[in-house]
């Protein structure tokens, strides 16, 4: 038997979470895990999906504050996300199926902490922070430091993810997320990569960040992406270097979806393509969201 409460305020939700209730919004992870026998439904659930406090997408002076229960479908259609935090729109547009995207939330994706989560790598390259609140107060943790392992985060049991805070990106910056997929719908990332590229006024790369999906126990950032890319044109040698850097960072497993060898190779390809797409966007190439449906093998015809 599961106890199910519908929180009418954030305070009520926090109080219940402090008592040991597990928060639920879209339920796309909890319910599917229960149905497939991976994990039974928690004994006590508190629904947070109707809380106005958690459902906003608000521009702030520092950047964008995205409520935890904002759905993937809403993110992929929100113009400010598409314009300024494009990798996150790319990723949101690829999650699961239309019905998954209509109920699945960004907060749920972040807290579920799957190494194959699509929104994680974009949040890392965009320097996002996860906003955690409990009855004890609020704190923020950088996305790059947030995931501790498959299904594990640094959040305390009584902390609720209430929002994602993404800082304004510098002028001349753009981002993209690309993933390897075996089919064009109902898919999970085999591997993926997000890239952010910052250009100066003359179109030269002055900063970059690359993060990888499904090649390690958590989302991981590629070390020294700026050092690899800064000041260089995106010629084949540069792209090979970033691909190699990504493959070196990867510590993938072999499972049903791919071998470790194939994953390590493909994450390099994805990193290269993410950098190319981000660079393209930064230089005015209108690559539509998501990249996977705009270019390459998965493009719409």
């Amino acid at each position: 038997m599961t106890e199910f409460e519908i929180a009418s305020s954030l305070e009520e939700a926090l109080a219940l979470v402090a008592e040991g209730y597990r928060p639920i919004a879209g339920g796309t992870d909890l319910v599917v895990a229960a149905r497939t026998g991976r994990a039974p439904l928690p004994g006590r659930l508190v629904s947070i999906e109707r809380l106005d406090e958690l459902s906003g997408i608000e521009p702030t002076t520092e950047g964008l504050l995205i409520g935890a229960v904002v759905t993937h479908a809403r993110l992929m259609r929100t113009q400010s996300v598409i314009d300024d935090f494009t990798a996150l729109a790319d990723a949101s547009a690829l999650v699961g199926s239309p019905s998954t995207r209509n109920v699945g939330t960004i907060g749920g994706n972040v807290m579920n902490a799957s190494p194959a989560m699509d929104t994680g790598a974009p949040l890392v390259v965009l320097n996002a922070e996860i906003v955690l609140r409990s009855t004890r107060g609020e704190r923020r943790v950088a996305a790059a430091d947030f995931w501790a392992g498959p299904g594990r985060t640094v959040a305390e049991p009584d902390e609720l993810c209430v929002a994602l805070a993404i800082p304004n990106q510098p002028d001349g910056s753009a981002s993209a997320y690309v993933r390897l997929e075996y089919r064009r719908a109902m898919e999970i990332a085999v591997v993926g990569a997000a890239a952010r590229v910052d250009l100066d006024g003359r179109g030269r790369i002055i900063g970059a960040s690359v993060a990888l999906t499904a090649v390690a126990p958590t989302i991981v950032a590629v070390d020294g992406a700026t050092e690899v890319l800064a000041g260089r044109s995106l010629d084949p040698a540069t792209l090979t270097d970033i691909a190699d850097a990504a493959s070196r960072k990867a510590t993938p497993i072999s499972d049903l979806r791919a071998s470790d060898t194939y994953r390590r190779h493909c994450v390099g390809v994805m990193a290269r393509r993410a950098v190319e797409a981000a660079f393209g966007r930064a230089t005015g190439d209108p690559i539509a969201v998501p990249v996977n449906r705009s270019t390459g093998i998965g493009a719409a015809r």
């Binding site: 497939t36 075996y182 089919r183 719908a185 109902m186 999970i188 049903l256 979806r257």
Partner: peptide, 26 residues
Amino acid sequence: SEGTVYGDGRQRNAALLEYKLQTAAD
């Protein structure tokens, strides 16, 4: 995409996420 993977004589991909049917989008 459709192929059964066996381990110890048992199906390892007896689920629609890992046994990949083509979708309408494909």
